[in-house]
Amino acid sequence: MKARVYVSFKDSVLDPQGKAVKNALLSIGYEKVKDVRQGKFFQIEMDDMSEAEAKRQITEMAEKILSNPVIEKFEVIL
């Protein structure tokens, strides 16, 4: 079973890298870009197990180590 975890900064946290990427996009002519937030993506492969149990374990991983709850939020997609 494969799961995807997206980790990104909370909306209240400034993202200097995202801002730099946005400025780069604007400077090469993508004038319609309103905002860019940069984050992390994890693809996690698990042994066979129920979807509910996989979701529980991966959510726990995301809370414990994959994200830093002080500045980041995450989304788990199975």
Binding site: V13, L14, P16, Q17, A20, N68, V70, I71
Partner: peptide, 17 residues
């Protein structure tokens, strides 16, 4: 120390990148 919760807060990349 921040990651382990012994002190509060977090570190971001320097504003200058």
């Amino acid at each position: 120390l921040l990651e382990s919760g012994l002190l509060p807060g977090a570190m971001m990349i320097n504003k200058t990148l």
